[in-house]
Write a protein that binds this DNA or RNA. Structure first.
Lengths: 102, 102
DNA sequence: TTATTACTTGACAATAAGTGTCAAATGTAA
DNA sequence: TTACATTTGACACTTATTGTCAAGTAATAA
């Protein structure tokens, strides 16, 4: 089971890129990228988009990894975690079928 | 599809309790509870626990509603929402099978 | 009508969480 | 050692969350 950080690091290294090079492209300090890769900090959505560009990763796939990481982390310590996901799925379907008029 | 707010309001009213009575039990201003019931603000976990006590709702069930609301809201506007949930489920299983030593 | 009661609204304050910079420390290899 | 990449932690800045308060609305009774 790969985390977003692991995916990013593996891809960056396989392309021979340095932290500072990639960080410069993201317009953040390399310290943050270092932490993102070790799952010490979470990337922003913006980070994810730019990372998928420079590392030639599929944008949607990386976004899915990013969001699923966030959710998994959020509920992992609840023993009702899997029910939460099931109910969330129903709610998402409902929300998409009944969009809010705004 | 009921929101947490709707569940709370329905139960509070069925018990003939006033906003200020329940809010006092939660140790928050009744304005907040009013907003929680109308889904204008999200309850904290602490709020959820105390609400389940005073309203005699199942604590786990209310927590599930609370967390699934949060997640559904978080991803509803992504078109990869259902994949996110599937991947999240895998990650949760993995995390629970491989707990972090701390 | 006025008074009372329950609830709602919005401006604001306090606090917590997220996001970032920087410089020093650590690791690694020539 | 020197040079370079990465890591670490203290700190600052910004944004989000959580709350208080007082004034507003709505419904009802006197």
């Amino acid at each position: 089971m790969e985390t977003v950080g692991q995916i990013i690091r593996a891809k960056r290294e396989s392309q021979g890129l340095l932290l500072r090079q990639v960080a410069a492209h993201l317009d953040i300090d390399q310290a943050i990228l270092s932490k993102i890769e070790r799952n010490e900090r979470k990337p922003t959505k913006e980070n994810i988009f730019k990372l998928s560009q420079i590392l030639k990763l599929d944008k949607d796939e990386l976004l899915i990894q990013f969001m699923s990481d966030k959710i998994a982390y959020e509920i992992a310590d609840e023993d009702c975690a899997s029910r939460v996901l099931k109910v969330a799925e129903k709610k998402v379907k409902y929300l998409r079928a009944h969009p809010i008029k705004s």
